[in-house]
Nucleic acid binder design. Structure first.
Length: 800
RNA sequence: GCGGCUGUGGCGGAAUUGGCAGACGCGCUAGACUUAGGAUCUAGUGUCAAUGACGUGGGGGUUCAAGUCCCUUCAGCCGCACCA
């Protein structure tokens, strides 16, 4: 059979479309399977070869489950709000909605050309008002429950573009796009209290089937630490509270440090004799960019607060207070007790400022290096803690502090609240109104969606307000509460908003009464298998878990975790082993590959390229091997005749089905394909196969290379779709060969092989070896010390 | 600095519980067919001083047996980065 992939692929893609072959039925009695891939941002560049790696992998699993009789929901949509579209719109004077529509059309046709079995009837788009109505609705619920609040905070400000930048848009302290200086600016921003869910986001990870590196990364990001808050009296009269994970080292605290932004400085400016120097330092610290402040060479700087001292509560020693930017206002209490003997940063600071280093845990040489080990040390110079191990000392000092009203145990998280405001046009409007009388007032649910007004120009205003701020007839409105004059919030939501709940919308995408019906959510959720990039682990994946938990708390969702299983694909690199990028000129366009080799070959190659979880370089040569395999597979049609089974091939078929079936579940697609290549080789060696066998093969290969399999299936006289054919099964008993080879070793060296029946006894096999002339030289005149037999594998006779 | 990952032929990569290292594919070599070959088919392809020995980044160890387990060391990649 000639393998005309262009004709075959166009034909079957149309057939699938016409027959709505992958539209999922609303039959809630059938077992369900909900696989999901991260919906793309429809960029102007079109599809990247990285996209199909994830999509094809999950497509294979979806197709397999469908063939196995599950009700499979494999949906696709568009995460279409975002900055690049807005910038493109600004530059070319085209409305972002039009840009989005164009990009979506391109992406969709590209995805369709890959033969992915998406249920297109459930396509969603985050920029669709019918969709973002519910994004806004969820925000209103968060606001209602006190989980959305406005806070003045420092943001990145590009001095040239005059816009607020996300952290990701700041590279080495410069604007990613125009390379001019980025400074900090105070701005009021909407925040979501994800920190309120920190403990639950951490705890619930345990029961999820997420790959380890995702769990570990989320755990680190949430960053739970346990310790104590300790109060230090000061000569200024106000207590300073510090957070420490090492309360056991309290006797070694020889000074304190507060962050430049700490209110203590302002509160007691009159008592600080060198207040000018302190204020200078504050100003310097504020001017520093994030890059400078966290630079690798972290030389410690700071200024002593002269005229004020703190008192160490355990020994009533007076200790100096410093201000330094190595203490962050955003973590703990913004103040620390410094124990230079047992903390690297404090040690560096103490060396710089010639402060005393007092050893309180024995085990290191603290004058030369901070000793931070907590496992081996014994307490010294610590009064009632002396002689204890660190762990014991920690418990004892915490209860002592607690009893004396000087401190208490405390848990802290690195996780910060989620900055939810963007001063941008192309995002969901935040559905709140500012009323001088009533404060922030939510708009009425029945008035959702709050639509983005149509604009001609999308330039942000000079003061960093969203372009929406210029649309006065949109901004000015009536307060929903008192009907007085009010103004709309002009900030929009970040791109992460729409993607934080999209998997719920797929369950019931056209519902205009609820974000999705209870019934649909109950049936489809959770997502059974979610694959996506590692780069989303601490953002999208965490945010969406947070929203799901919130929706669970307010009784919209029946389960507290949205995803049962999470896997992650490796990147596809350029042929030069570097990340693909236009500037390197190593970009491979999937359209070109589909044109030259066909979608089936592209799918197969991306699955064959290597370990799914690892990065792999593209190879223009290797892809030919996959094309060759499909040609050879198509060629099987010419040597297929008769029905029934071919006895010589039967074991090979059962083995291959077993291997492929298992490998797909473990995402070992490369070895599954290798097994099918081997089977093909074996069939050609044998010279023929039956039509029944070819049908079996087609239904096995179908999830990987669906177009050619449909064609073969059809040519073999089937009238239905191969994509709907029952997935092949195997008989365990038939996967075992009648005769197996056993490796024969003498003293651990391989000297030959023998053939025997499966499951032979040790005695049988050893006797066979001893009576085999080829092994006589190794036994002659030797004394047998030990005989080892591994069933069906190997014999090792140790001789002397 | 902390956390995570990876080192196997010329290349991408295989290898249940420790049990034939290099499956499968690319590339390469030779041959066949051919006006032609960036097509197809057949055979070969870890290294070497080659009936044997050596081989999974380096060194050491455990074991009848180590890519796999233990100790140690080197190299590369990714994430976070002064989180007290």
């Amino acid at each position: 059979m000639k393998y005309d992939f262009k004709e075959i692929e166009a034909k079957w893609q149309k057939e699938w479309d016409d027959k709505e072959a992958f539209k999922v039925g609303v039959d809630y009695s059938k077992p369900k399977f909900y696989p999901l891939v991260e919906f793309p941002y429809p960029s102007a560049q079109g599809l990247h070869v990285g996209h199909p790696r994830s999509y094809t992998a999950i497509d294979i699993i979806a197709r397999k489950r469908r063939q196995q009789g599950y009700n499979v929901l494999y949906p696709m949509g568009w995460d279409a709000f975002g900055l690049p579209t807005e910038n493109f719109a600004m530059k070319n004077k085209i409305h972002p909605a039009v840009v989005t529509a164009n990009n979506v059309a391109r992406f969709k046709s590209q995805l369709k050309s890959l033969g992915l079995s998406f249920d297109w009837s459930r396509e969603i788009n985050t920029t669709d008002p019918d969709y973002y109505k519910w994004t806004q609705w969820i925000f209103l619920k968060l606001f209602e429950k006190g989980l959305a609040y406005k806070k003045k905070m420092s943001v990145n400000w590009c001095t040239s573009c005059k816009v607020v930048l996300a952290n990701e848009e700041v590279v080495n302290g410069l604007c990613e796009r125009c390379h001019s200086e980025v400074i900090h600016k105070e701005k009021s921003q909407w925040m979501l209290k994800i920190t309120e869910y920190a403990q639950r986001l951490l705890d619930d990870l345990d029961d999820l089937d997420f790959i380890d590196r995702v769990k570990i990364q989320q755990k680190n990001w949430i960053g739970r630490s346990t310790g104590a808050e300790v109060d230090f009296e000061t000569t200024a009269g106000e207590k300073l509270t510090v957070y420490t994970t090492r309360p056991d080292t309290l006797f070694g605290a020889t000074y304190m440090v507060i962050s430049p932004e700490h209110s203590f400085i302002v509160n007691h400016a009159d008592k600080i004799s060198n207040i000018d120097a302190v204020n200078n330092y504050k100003a310097e610290a504020a001017k520093k960019s994030d890059f400078e402040r966290t630079e690798i060479a972290k030389d410690k700087t700071g200024v002593k607060l002269c005229g004020i001292e703190a008192i160490n509560p355990v020994n009533n020693t007076k200790i100096p207070i410093f201000v330094s930017d190595y203490v962050l206002i955003t973590y703990g209490t913004g103040a620390i007790m410094a124990v230079p003997a047992h903390d690297t940063r404090d040690w560096e600071f103490a060396k710089e400022f010639n402060l005393p280093i007092v050893e309180v845990v024995k085990g290191g040489d603290v004058q030369n290096e901070a000793f931070t080990d907590v496992e081996t040390g014994i307490m010294v110079n610590s009064g009632f803690l002396d002689g204890l191990e660190v762990k014991e000392a920690k418990e004892k000092i915490i209860s002592w502090l607690d009893q004396n009203g000087l401190g208490k145990p405390k848990v802290n998280f690195k996780l910060r609240d989620w900055v939810f405001s963007r001063q941008r046009y192309w995002g969901e409007p935040i559905p709140l109104v500012w009323c001088e009388k009533c404060g922030w007032v939510p708009i009425d649910e029945k008035d959702l969606p709050l639509r983005l007004p149509d604009l001609e120009a999308f330039e942000p205003s000079d003061n960093g307000e969203s372009p929406l701020a210029n649309v006065t007839d949109w901004v000015n409105c009536k307060c929903p509460k008192c009907n007085g004059d009010a103004k709309r919030e002009t900030d929009t939501m970040p791109q992460w908003a729409g993607s934080s709940w999209y998997f719920l919308r797929y369950c019931d995408p056209n519902n205009d009464k609820e974000l999705a019906s209870k019934e649909a959510l109950e049936y489809w959720m959770p997502v059974d298998w979610y694959n996506g990039g590692m780069e989303h682990t601490t953002l999208h994946l965490l945010y969406s878990r947070f929203w799901a938990k919130f929706l669970y708390d307010i009784d919209i969702l029946q389960i507290p975790e949205p995803y049962r299983k999470r896997t992650s694909h490796g990147m596809i690199l350029g042929e030069d082993n570097q990340k693909m990028s236009k500037s390197r000129g190593n970009v491979v366009n999937p359209d070109d590959i589909v044109n030259e080799y066909g979608a089936d070959t592209l799918r197969l190659y991306e699955m064959f390229i290597g370990d799914f979880e690892k990065a792999a370089p593209w190879s223009g040569n290797s892809i030919k091997g996959c094309k060759r395999f499909l040609e050879r597979f198509a060629g099987l049609y010419d040597i297929a005749s008769g029905n029934g089974i071919t006895p010589e091939l039967d074991t090979a078929f059962h083995k291959t089905i077993k291997k492929v079936t298992g490998d797909i579940e473990e995402m070992k697609f490369n070895t599954a394909i290798a097994a099918m290549m081997s089977l093909t080789n074996e069939i050609y060696e044998h010279g023929s196969l039956t039509k029944d066998e070819l049908k079996t093969f087609a239904s096995l290969l179908c999830p990987f290379a669906p177009h050619i399999c449909e064609e073969i299936w059809h040519n073999l006289g089937e009238t239905g779709l191969c994509s709907h054919a029952a997935y092949p099964t195997y008989d365990e008993a038939k996967t075992v060969d009648n005769i197996i080879e056993i490796v024969v070793q003498f003293s651990g060296k391989i000297r030959g092989k023998i053939q025997t029946a499966p499951d032979s006894s040790q005695e049988q096999v050893i006797n066979q070896v001893k009576s085999d002339a080829q092994f006589a030289p190794y036994l002659e005149g030797k004394q047998i010390i030990k005989e080892i037999y591994v069933k069906n594998k190997l014999v090792n006779i140790v001789v002397k």
